[in-house]
Design a protein around this nucleic acid. Structure first.
Lengths: 243, 243
DNA sequence: TTAGGATATATGTACATACATAGATACATT
DNA sequence: AATGTATCTATGTATGTACATATATCCTAA
């Protein structure tokens, strides 16, 4: 992995610095240690402190770094979180935090749309839709079970390589760009099925997220259910008053 | 509304500029027009362009502003919907749904700030803060247990009538306007205490919400923990991609 | 008429610099 | 031993400056 800055590159220095930092903080040693201080780091990369700070600020804003005056800058300790403002897929979220994702299970099937699904997709209950189930998590073990349903219009066959990021498959291969998502978050007790998948006791708390995804024309493209192991997922929301 | 910068204020200039911009872009004329250009605006506010850009950048990150090189800066259309739109207190939320609120329990106490709280409030652990605990819900029964801590700066005495909406007390009696809230939502199992309060089994799932509330100058004012009965509360989020 | 070039405009990138301030630590004073 | 004080370190705040570059407009020459 590259940890230097190319002053001759047409890519702006602060963008290069940002990329470099994103890679840097994935290094396991920075899970505990502080980053080098700004002045030294700027000197070492042969860029100005201002430029370096521009890059640092962005990661701080995204919640990846925490700075403390007089102390230093360190990687945020949060396990997983999702921010309402930026729009990231699961894989992207994980990658940004340097957490390698592991796919534990993957099931593909075609099922008839139930009433709720037929209504959301605006199709008949006689239509079949692609159902994708995935058990995913970190190296140590799975922490989320996803169930996704896709609108037939997209043209997924079920033969796609679902180990690739989902939104990449939709964008590159099917020119579908997810643009809007409506989510409902609540808590649920693990039933027998989920308990076995996520390796928890039956009845233990899960964070449950329903996600309705739309494309740029606000047409429905995906209905997604996510069952998260309670300790591994925090949903963060930032809201500001309107008045 | 104030559209000037106080160079003698202890509030950093870029924070003041940020607030000013947030107010400015609410003016209906900027729905169509471009903002004044950076150089002029900086001159007019008697701050440097760098400082002004620091403020502009933040709003750009948040998706409120769109800049185009050579063209100008304008207010983003709608974008990032739910962020700004639903900022409601619990009572307001319930009222909006036409649900009458019932207060089942109310405890007021003064406690020493623990480390986490002291850090958030930026005070010492030797200071006492007002702790407010409330069990609330619908006619049929309670479904949420709130624990709130308030910054001493506000000047709450503990003798307030906490049956009134909280944000009304803060605004009308203490001129504190809650402006920004950062929330973390996760799932938790009910412990013995919560189980008894919310009338559920020990270990059953609760939706757990931490809320950090700030005033207009982004000073911390409240730290709030909410334990929601799982079936009674759904958190909804709407997010749009900001290309 | 129109392709192409000059120019104006506003943001984008980058640097050097200076001083303020919070947290930690070590040392001196009482 | 407790309290204050100085100092060190790293981030926070703020300015002035210079040049680059994308977009729009106007002007000119084939």
């Amino acid at each position: 992995m590259k940890f230097s800055i190319d002053h001759k590159s047409p890519v702006p220095l602060h963008i290069q610095a940002e990329e470099l930092l994103r890679n840097l903080i994935k290094q396991p040693e920075y899970a505990t240690k502080f980053l080098p201080n700004e002045v030294d780091m700027a000197k070492q990369l042969a860029i100005s402190r201002t430029t370096l700070r521009q890059a640092l600020n962005k990661l701080v804003y995204e919640g990846l770094l925490i700075r403390k005056k007089g102390i230093g800058t360190k990687v945020a300790e949060v396990c997983v979180s999702s921010k309402a403002s930026n729009w990231l897929s699961f894989s992207q979220e994980m990658q940004a935090r340097g957490i390698p994702i592991k796919n534990f299970e993957l099931h593909i099937s075609w099922v008839y749309a139930d009433e709720k699904l037929a209504h959301f997709f605006d199709i008949g209950t006689d239509k079949k839709v692609l159902k994708l189930e995935r058990l995913r998590g970190k190296e140590e073990g799975p922490f989320v079970y996803f169930i996704s349903y896709f609108h037939p219009r997209i043209g997924l066959t079920g033969d796609e390589d679902f180990k690739r990021p989902l939104y990449e498959i939709l964008e590159k291969d099917h020119s579908i760009i997810a643009n809007l998502s409506k989510e409902e978050i609540s808590a649920k007790a693990a039933d027998k099925f989920m308990a076995s998948k996520l390796d928890v006791e039956v009845g233990s708390p899960l964070l449950f997220r329903k996600r309705y995804v739309f494309d740029q024309a606000e047409r429905p493209i995906e209905y997604n259910l996510g069952y998260y192991h309670a300790d591994s997922f925090v949903y963060t929301v930032e809201s500001r008053r309107d008045t």
